[in-house]
Each structure stands twice: as C-alpha cells, then as structure tokens.
C-alpha cells in the first residue's frame, strides 16, 4: 500500500493501531501480527490471531522503525501483534529521555 505521513493503519488480527510519522515514497507491505494492516475506515475489525514470530505485541506511544528509519510508525493503540514490513519486524526507536523543559 501507499503510505503518507499522517496515514492511520489498523491491525487485522489484534487491537494495534498506528499512525505513520514518516513514510517512504514507495509501495510498502506493512504488517501487524504477520498480516497486512488495513485502512481503519474500511476495515471490518480484527479477527484471527498474530502468527508465530510476530506476536510480541505493540506498546502505546512507542515509535517503530525499519532498519534505515525511512519508515516510522507511532503506536496509538496497543495490541498483541508485532509490526513489520514483509517478514522483517520493526524495532522500537530508542529515544534518550530528556528532562522536561516546558
């Protein structure tokens, strides 16, 4: 699917919802729980369960990135599936916590 910054996606197999913060300008096969994610406005809701190896779950408020960080997804609702592109799982973007400044 084609993704833009600001696009929302919903898992087909768990409660996970994400917003694309950064997206590459190309077709991309984004999955959650091993199954392609869907547009939340047209999806019928989740059914089934995450496939083995993609069932670590997602954490709310974490950002998930691909290895070259051209893709960044913000988890806005947590669920049981893991995020990935094709077979490759995304990883949490580690951020150094900063002291509150405002």
């Amino acid at each position: 699917m084609e993704l833009r910054a600001g696009s929302r996606l919903k898992s087909a197999v768990c409660d996970t919802e994400v917003i694309a913060v950064k997206a590459p300008a190309e077709d991309i096969d984004i999955r959650c729980g091993g199954v392609p994610m869907a547009d939340p406005t047209t999806s019928d809701g989740a059914s089934g369960s995450p496939v083995g190896g993609a069932d670590e779950g997602t954490l709310m408020g974490k950002r998930y990135v691909n290895p070259d960080e051209t893709l960044e997804l913000l988890c806005t609702k947590p669920g049981g599936g893991s995020l990935g592109v094709g077979e490759t799982l995304l990883v949490i973007k580690e951020s150094k916590p900063l002291p509150a400044s405002d």
Partner: peptide
C-alpha cells in the same frame, strides 16, 4: 502540525 508533533515525539515520552 508536523513541526509540533516532531518536537513532542522527539522530546516527550508518552505517559512519562
């Protein structure tokens, strides 16, 4: 929105 969201996501931990 892109500027402010980038600032918040980059410097604040959700429910921190």
């Amino acid at each position: 929105h892109s500027h402010l969201i980038s600032y918040i996501l980059g410097s604040v931990e959700f429910m921190g």
